[in-house]
Design a protein around this nucleic acid. Structure first.
Lengths: 339, 339
DNA sequence: CCAACTTTTACGCCGCGTCACCGTCT
DNA sequence: AAGACGGTGACGCGGCGTAAAAGTTG
């Protein structure tokens, strides 16, 4: 069979058939008296084999090695090819999300494209300084002509380990005002750090939508998220955060911040009563550790109202000297200034 | 700034910087007195721009065209790049599934790999004849050393439009005995044809697992699926199919097949009674169209038992002549042979 | 004799590493 | 004067299209 016939039937161009021959992939191909290549049935079969292996992604060189080595184990090669293909898909997918972000920024001209690309690239950089600069510039560039790619900011904020850069990213997000939906998804991440970062980022975003999200986060499965949400909800005047905040006052660590948040909420007299009652219930409930009782007592400092005054009077006779002294001191502070 | 410095700070190799220069991407780069390239701040900025565009997947030639044309609209280019990238991802993904299937076939040597690849390739061919041969060969090759990639068969069977090839594929699937799980997923496809093909394929697979799946399919949202399942469940002795089959008898199209299936089920005397009752209820229920009544009467032919005989006696006096004649004829057939 | 084949040889593409060989700074 | 820079030119890789120039079929 001559080369043209083989080319037509196998779908491989005559050029490539000659190339295979030149590379020695076919062993020796027969020739007619006048020098034309004469392919045998075996040759054709071998050509089909070559095409099969090439379809799996092997290079011609690899095909040659594979077909020549009769004792080759295919399974590991297949596994390796799978790995390589996955890697390529991952790279292409990263490229695709970059492209989508650039497109979403609706650049008006090349200048904008270049700026967005540089920004995205810097946000994904290994270098913390570059990331920092990128975060700051996206925080400040909201007045530019192109839209800052919010989802890239969210992704960066959720993955950022450097605290300074993370802060800058949260600031940028807060200024952009968007990304709440993706941050909300971050609250459900399997990774604890991501959940916490999402909660912090939402906490720094102003507006009713973020507040609503924080209220929902009060029922999050992750206690860290719940506490972060509660701290942020205090200044926003959300009474739903009170139980979590009282829990936090009784816990080591964020008790001062929680007490402050309760103090802000207690600006409303109705809430002040509820908060005071909650704190007192905690103090008189059984099995509370002494350190927690002291923190709860101190938290009463920020809560106005008669309910607190009564509680402090009783606490000034508390069995725990530290509690009694603190309560007495706070009581004196609350005496009316007109002697 | 000399080339080495630029290379170190931009991450672009000196080789490539010279290449950019040779391609004219940078306009004219300055030179020192001794002929060294001297990059200005603008040059460096331009280099960063080039890198940005290359990161988006543009070739050097495209970068040159883009940067030279000041009035270029970037948005359409971005859209095109997105399309191309998606296409590449799709191609790589197809390759990945092929590779996984080859790996799943656990080939012992190159021979097996080649056969599996050829088979997969033929299954995905445009040419119906090739697909047919591939289907037949995978139906017959279950005795070979390698495992036929069942999921490829399922995918092919769910997408096949040629009825002959589809039949061969279902046969191959039935012989392989696997793929039920993926076929079950096909029952939930948004495409009606795919759902029907999945149902047909399951119907041809023997065994309790397939029967169970068919029973579940009786509650499928797609009526075609339900009917296909019911037809297949008849011969498997599943009484659950009876209501659907009776519905089918009263409907144009598959009524004869449904009647046959009911006849098989009626081999069990208890079921025979239930079926007869069901058919009679349909006949005496209000607002049944005449054609349906005739089909229901004919279906009684295959149902033994006294209940049927009584019904036929009554029907032989039916107002519809066709029904009455049919019933009378069937009654005569049922007279005991001993005169 | 012509048309349709075949043959070999060779260039180009694209992005880039790497050499060779030579000049120029400090 | 050594060694770190810079310059140009060229080759190679991989997979193939394409084209030229010539010979072989029917």
């Amino acid at each position: 069979v001559l080369i043209g016939e083989v080319a037509r039937r196998s779908g491989v161009s005559a050029r490539m058939l000659r190339h295979y021959d030149a590379l020695g992939l076919l062993g020796q191909v027969g020739r007619t008296g006048s020098g034309y290549r004469e392919y045998s049935g075996e040759d054709i079969e071998r050509i089909l084999h070559i095409e099969s292996l090439r379809a799996l992604g092997l290079s011609l060189r690899e095909v040659g090695r594979a077909l020549d080595d009769p004792g080759f184990r295919p399974s590991e090669l297949i596994a390796e090819l799978i790995g390589q293909t996955r890697e390529r898909i991952a790279a292409e997918t990263r490229l695709l999300t970059q492209l989508r972000r650039v497109g979403a920024a609706e650049p008006a001209g090349w200048e904008d494209v270049l700026q967005v690309v540089a920004l995205l690239h810097a946000l994904g950089s290994e270098n913390a300084g570059r990331r920092q600069r990128a975060a700051l510039s996206s925080a400040l560039s909201s007045a530019e002509e192109f839209a800052v790619p919010v989802d890239a900011l969210v992704e960066a904020a959720l993955e950022e380990t450097d605290p300074n850069v993370a802060g800058a990213l949260r600031w940028a997000l807060a200024r952009s005002g968007g990304g709440l939906q993706q941050l909300a998804r971050g609250l459900g991440s399997p990774v604890a750090e991501v959940r916490e970062r999402a909660a912090q980022a939402i906490a720094e975003i102003p507006g009713e939508a973020a507040t609503e999200l924080l209220r929902a986060a009060l029922t999050n499965a992750d206690i860290v998220v719940r506490r972060c949400a509660a701290l942020a909800l205090g200044p926003r005047g959300s009474a739903e955060a009170i139980p979590t905040l009282i829990d936090m006052v009784a816990t080591e660590g964020r008790d001062v911040d929680a007490a402050d948040a309760l103090g802000v909420l207690a600006g409303d007299p109705v809430l002040a009563d509820r908060i005071a009652t909650g704190l007192v219930n905690r103090l008189t409930g059984g099995a509370v550790d002494p350190a927690a009782r002291r923190q709860l007592t101190q938290a009463l400092a920020g809560i106005p109202g008669d309910r607190t005054s009564q509680a402090l009077t009783e606490l000034s006779r508390d069995a725990d000297r530290a509690v009694a002294v603190t309560a007495a001191y706070l009581l004196k502070l609350r005496e009316p200034p007109d002697r």
